[in-house]
Design a protein around this nucleic acid. Structure first.
Length: 223
DNA sequence: CATGGGATTGACT
DNA sequence: GTCAATCCCATGC
């Protein structure tokens, strides 16, 4: 399949290392680790891209997760192999984007909740119908609209599919020796955790992860 | 087959 | 702060 434009050229912002997508081994880990480590990474779709500033973890063992009910037509992707996009319709209106995690057979995924836009801003503004860049991707339904991610991409591979996720290469490039954590795009990113948003069950679990101080996270902001 | 409930958003009081 | 929009699907009769 042909390379996507956003993979080959990106604006200066953040100078992401778009040469390499996150590998399968990144997703085949405990979902809480993946959720935390995805903050600071870059997600791209077509000409558009943004840096992840907010995520939430979902695991079959707790009732807020769709996989809690077991294997059904809806949860097939969730129980599938890691590194796939789980896209579903929310409230009959919005498409929400997740990254499937943990080994195949374990229903778990990370919901991508907010991005800092870095590429394809004009297309995002057009799709979103606003000129306010803070409103482009500051919510799970907003970012899929801005990126143009749709339900048909459910089950597609994040490793070799239309939705791509990259480490946002920070200062020390590759080959810096030391076995750095395999996931986090950048070096030091301060991530805060708190309760997940918009759920009615397992509300106490602090499985939401936000980039500290980012104006691009959704509301309510994490103190 | 009928029903009910959302991993949300935007408009409005 | 409240509330409707809108549709997929899990559940129950």
């Amino acid at each position: 399949m042909r390379p996507r434009a956003a993979e080959r050229s990106l604006p200066e912002t953040g100078a992401p290392d778009l040469a390499r997508r996150l590998p399968l081994s990144f997703y085949a880990r405990p979902v809480l680790e993946v959720a935390r480590d995805l903050v600071g990474c870059t997600v791209a779709h077509g000409e558009t891209a943004g840096v992840i500033v907010e995520t939430e973890a979902y695991h079959y063992s707790e009732p807020a997760c769709h996989a809690f009910v077991g294997l059904t037509p809806r949860t097939t992707t969730l129980f599938g192999p890691p590194g796939q996009a789980y896209v579903y319709r929310s409230y009959g209106i919005h498409a929400l984007l997740n990254a499937v995690c943990e080994p195949a057979g374990v229903g778990a995924a990370v919901l991508i909740r907010a991005l800092r836009p870095i590429a394809g801003l004009e297309q995002m503004r057009s799709r979103r119908g606003t000129e306010d860049d803070l409103e482009l991707c500051s919510g799970p339904g907003k970012l899929t609209q801005a990126l143009g991610v749709e339900l048909g991409e459910n089950g597609s591979s994040l490793l070799d599919g239309p939705v791509a996720i990259f480490a946002t290469g920070g200062g020390s490039g590759a080959g810096s020796g030391a076995e750095s954590v395999p996931g986090p795009g950048t070096g030091p990113v301060e991530v805060r955790s708190g309760p997940r948003i918009g759920i009615s069950k397992a509300v106490e679990l602090p499985w939401r992860f936000c980039l500290a101080g980012s104006p691009y996270v959704s509301r309510p902001r994490l103190a």
